Computed example of a mutant assay.
Amino acid sequence: MPQTARVLVADHDPVQRAIVAGMLDLAGFDCEEALDGEAALQALACRPADVVVLEMLMPNKDGIEVLIHIKREWPDTKVLTISAGGLMSPAQLLHLSRALGADATMAKPLRRGAFVAAVRDLAGRSPRAAAEPAGAASDAAWP
């Protein structure tokens, strides 16, 4: 039986994290959640992921710190950075994350179809992913 791609969702907002993880669960991914940057790094140290969905603005290590650490320690792990912005616009934050090694970026609110497709694409490029998860999704907006 093929292994399902593992995705770690790191977002400090519990509602956003649950929505994102729910979309990925419905699409057939093996999902784990982390409430901040430090928890994300601890989770990866315990159990590597094929893809990390990483909010850029978080406490206890922001997305930039976590992204740099992931790319240094787990270079085969794919990272999709997401953001609604803060003091910087989402475009600025996501451009910075791309320059620091993010494999893909997406501004919030996420469009379910595009988001799931992006994660599938990244999981398919991961050496740990044995098979692309099944399931279709619409392009409805999610917060």
Rank of each mutant, 00 (worst) to 15 (best):
A45Y: 10
M56G: 08
D36G: 10
V52W: 03
P109F: 05
A114M: 09
M88E: 09
D36Y: 12
N60G: 11
N60V: 12
A102P: 04
T105R: 04
E33M: 14
L80A: 01
P48A: 02
A102N: 06
L100F: 11
A102I: 03
A91H: 08
Q92N: 09
R72E: 15
H95Y: 10
M106C: 09
C46F: 06
L94Q: 01
D36V: 06
E65M: 11
L54Y: 10
P48R: 06
D103V: 03
G86H: 09
E33R: 11
M88G: 01
P109D: 06
R112Q: 11
L94N: 01
D76L: 04
E55L: 09
D76Y: 03
V52Q: 03
M106L: 10
E33D: 11
D76W: 03
A114C: 10
C31Q: 07
L93P: 00
P75Q: 06
R47I: 04
R111V: 01
R72Q: 14
P48S: 03
L100N: 08
N60M: 14
E55D: 15
D30V: 07
S97K: 05
E38W: 12
D62H: 11
L87E: 14
A91D: 12
E33L: 11
A104G: 01
N60E: 15
A114K: 07
D76E: 02
Q42T: 05
D36S: 10
H95G: 15
M106E: 06
E55A: 15
A102D: 03
A34V: 08
N60F: 12
V52H: 05
K61C: 10
K78A: 07
I68E: 13
G101Q: 06
A45E: 15
L87P: 13
V51L: 07
T105V: 15
D50T: 12
C31L: 11
T81M: 10
P109T: 11
S83H: 04
R47Q: 13
R98W: 14
D103I: 03
H95E: 14
L57E: 05
A84R: 04
L96V: 10
A34T: 06
T81Y: 02
K71L: 06
D103W: 06
L57G: 04
I82Q: 01
V51T: 01
E73P: 05
S83M: 07
R98N: 08
T81C: 13
V53A: 00
R72T: 15
D50S: 11
P109K: 08
L44Q: 00
A84N: 07
G85F: 09
P59E: 10
L80M: 03
E65G: 15
A43V: 02
L110C: 05
L44Y: 01
G28P: 14
K108A: 01
I70T: 08
L96H: 10
E73C: 08
L35Y: 11
G85Y: 11
R98L: 14
L54P: 13
A99Y: 09
Q42A: 12
L100P: 03
H69F: 10
E73I: 12
V53Q: 00
L110A: 02
F29W: 06
P75L: 08
A39C: 07
V52Y: 04
L93D: 05
T81L: 05
